[in-house]
Structure formats: C-alpha cells, structure tokens
Amino acid sequence: MSSKDIPAIDPRAPIILEMNHISKTFGAVTALVDVSIKLRQGEVLALVGDNGAGKSTLIKILSGFHRPDSGTIIYQGKEVRFYSPREARAHGVETVYQDLALINHLSVYHNMFVGREYHKWILGLKLLDNKKMRDLARAYLDTLGIQIPSVDSLVDLLSGGQRQSVAVARSIYSSPTILVLDEPLAALGVREGAHVLGLIQNLRRQRSVSIILIVHNYNQVFEVCDRINFLHSGEVVLDASTSETSEEQLIRIVKSGLGREAIAAAAAEIGNAM
C-alpha cells in the first residue's frame, strides 16, 4: 500500500484544531517557543523531532496533561482549555501514550472496555456483561483488520505490534475527533511496525478521524501522513506536505541540519516553510 492509493487531503477540508503561539517553560527549561500547528478534518500530521524538541510537551498540552504558559487552542472552531486528560477525552481527543496503558493481567476484550464497561443485571446484581464486550471487541478488531489469537488472551501474551494495535483500537472505538499516537513505532520491529502503519493508513483512507503522530524519524511514516512538521529546540522549523515534497528532498533538508540557513533554503525549495 503506498500513499499514491490515497488522494491528498482536500485543502478545503475544515480545520479541526489550531494550536496558536504555544509557549511552555518548566522552571529553567524552555520546552516550547511560540509553536503553532494546525490540523484538518481527516488529516494525518506527523510531528518529527529529536529528543527534547518539544513534541511530547505539545501533545501533553493538547491532551490536558500540561497547561501552556501562553497561546491558544482552537478546537472545532472554539477556544478550549483542557484541564485534565479526562476532559480532553470527553471532548473527543484520545491519546495513545507510549506505555499504551494496557492492563497486562486482563484479557484483550476487558482492556478494550475497561473504564466503560457494559453491564447486565442478574438477581439484582450489576455484573459485567462479558459476552457482549467479548463479541463487540471481536467484531471491532475484525473490522479494523487487527489479527490477534483471541480476544480472550491476556494482552500480556500479545506481541508488541498487537499490543499497539489493541491500544489504538481501544482509542478509536469511541469515535474520537482527534487521535494522538505518541511514538507508535518506538518499541516495534519492522514487521510489527508495518502492521501498525497499515492500521493508520486504513484510518486515513476513511478520513473520519484526524491523527497526530509523534515520531523520531519522518521516513518511518512518510507514506501514511499528509503533512510533516519538524520541531527543533521548541520551534516548528518546517511544515512540509507529503504530496508536494518528495522524500528525497526532505532527506536533503534534514541532512543539512535544520538550521536557520537550511530552512531558508528549504523554504525557497518547497515554498511553505514557517
């Protein structure tokens, strides 16, 4: 499956999220300086950068973990502030953290529904409706093309790629507006990574959820994203659209070091640097 299968994002697609002029410092450490990103409905955006570039801080501001020192978040046309991860989730912003937040001692289907369980009443007792959760989980994982030995197996026993897939499936089950994936490929082998990328590609094809991917390395995700934002020392230094930029061009720009001069040159070349 290549990016050519999927048409470029419609430039008229509404902007679902704007994070404008976000700055954040932690004590003496400046994490973000005047960072702005925007995300269209159904778009897949990759945030790329080295350790300490500010990717995680930006995402944790979006998901309600941190509050920005300055800047605004416009979400679905309205200015919002998320004070907790719960609140962000309630507004349709789901985050799959690097640790995946899977419960190793529970089965796949319990993991899918933990925190939003289905119940049935038996003899006046409010018990878990395990059959319903098992059936729903199996059907949902099937629609996503996620293959696991059984929804009854403990997530502990799954491979890294399967665990990542289950975590993603859990997050999109509630039909979020925005899905944030923090380093979805970090702990995965090539084949497992390809499986997770296939999952993202499927979501992208449907264009129903907007996705922000945090990655170290853009070439892992070049085919599955519509735009790549490079972060360097707390700033977005380059905003490249994958339909207008070739991977070879990006390699050249990135190899030149993402310094001021390189960005100026890149801007001249691809015409959309920030």
Binding site: A101, L102, H105, L127, L128
Partner: peptide, 24 residues
C-alpha cells in the same frame, strides 16, 4: 471476576499509571 469494581481492582494493581490514564 464479574464486576466493574473487580476489573478496576485488577487494573489498579497491574498497571497503576495506565489505569489512571484510562480514567480509573
């Protein structure tokens, strides 16, 4: 084994950070 409380009890002990992240 059959109630939400039990499920959340297991989740709390198995992965307390993850359990908090999913709102338990």
């Amino acid at each position: 084994n059959r109630t939400t409380f039990g499920l959340h009890t297991i989740a709390t002990g198995s992965n307390i950070i993850g359990a908090k992240e999913i709102g338990i």
